[in-house]
């Protein structure tokens, strides 16, 4: 038996080396990608939503809502051009909430347990799960931007590269929010509430559809609400990055909110302190 114990120790060492972390990340991302490939409906829905906004909503409003010169734009821009970063944010927002829904589902169905029982720190497993969702969401954004290019939404070529970190950070923030929500939502049925109380207010009370200075002209209170909405900052981060620029406030708020949401989510999933503890059978 002593030989067997030595074998156990070797196994433990092997399992807790850096390679273990890498292998776990690889399979978590791979599983998310496979899941996405298998759910083609999800991919199409994720694309159709912003495209409907772009092709129908924005086209209808272009004559009413031309946007005057404001950074990062150097000329007057069409409304379609203005809302494109907001629609990128919309994809990330829905993806973040979708993975939250998937996690609640996984928890109810049990497959989340397989992940959480793995011999790696729980925070790492959650970050991998989050990262996998973000990568898939960012891929969707690029497909959307490629289609938008044919609709004459053509930011500078360099923008397609500089927007990548912005998309990752914004995706991380919205994914962390989804993770946080999944740790507090008790049942799948409660998810409709998330749509009503998180997705819609976040999207509409933001700079995604209209510049904040215009909102301020209508209502200072609403402007304050929009400004306090982290989604506005995520959208502005994407907007500036798409034109090769950095908006420092947006960057700081988005990174700060990502870390805050992630910290609360990890707390929520902590077996010793979190919300799992008080949810019997969850």
């Amino acid at each position: 038996m002593s030989a067997s114990l030595a074998g156990d120790d070797r196994l433990a060492l092997e399992q807790h080396g850096l390679a273990h972390y890498w292998r776990a990340a690889r399979v978590i991302i791979g599983r998310e990608a496979l899941r996405f490939i298998h759910q083609r409906g999800r991919f199409i829905a994720a694309l159709v939503r912003p495209l409907v906004w772009l092709f129908i909503f924005a086209a209808g409003f272009r004559s009413v809502l031309g946007v005057s010169i404001q950074p990062p734009y150097v000329t007057y821009v069409l409304y379609e051009v203005y809302i494109t970063p907001g629609l990128c944010g919309m994809i990330l927002l829905f993806a973040g909430m979708q993975s939250s829904l998937a996690m609640v589902y996984d928890r109810e169905m049990g497959s989340m347990r397989v992940l959480l029982v793995s011999p790696l720190p729980r925070w790492y497993l959650l970050v991998c799960k989050l990262g996998a969702g973000v990568l898939v969401a960012v891929l969707q954004v690029y497909v959307f931007l490629a289609i938008a290019w044919f609709w004459e939404i053509q930011p500078p070529l360099i923008g397609y590269f500089t927007v990548l970190p912005a998309l990752l950070i914004a995706g991380f923030m919205l994914g962390s929010l989804g993770l946080l929500l999944s740790s507090v939502i008790r049942q799948l049925e409660n998810f409709a509430g998330v749509m009503n109380f998180v997705i819609f207010p976040m999207f509409f009370a933001s700079s995604a559809l209209y510049p904040l200075w215009r909102v301020r002209e209508s209502s200072v209170l609403l402007w304050q609400l929009c400004w306090a909405n982290p989604f506005s900052h995520a959208v502005e981060l994407i907007r500036f990055a798409l034109y090769g620029q950095i908006e420092p406030t947006a960057l700081a708020v988005t990174v700060g909110c990502s870390l805050l949401f992630l910290a609360i989510a990890i707390f929520g999933y902590d077996p010793a302190r979190g919300f799992m503890q008080i949810k019997r059978g969850s």
Binding site: E14, Q15, H16, G17, A19, H20, R23, A24, R26, V27, I28, G30, R31, L34, V114, L115, S118, P119, L120, L125
Partner: peptide, 12 residues
């Protein structure tokens, strides 16, 4: 695929 997922989580 299910088994490979688990194996990866356990560092194999």
């Amino acid at each position: 695929q299910n088994l490979l997922y688990h194996a990866g989580l356990h560092g194999l």
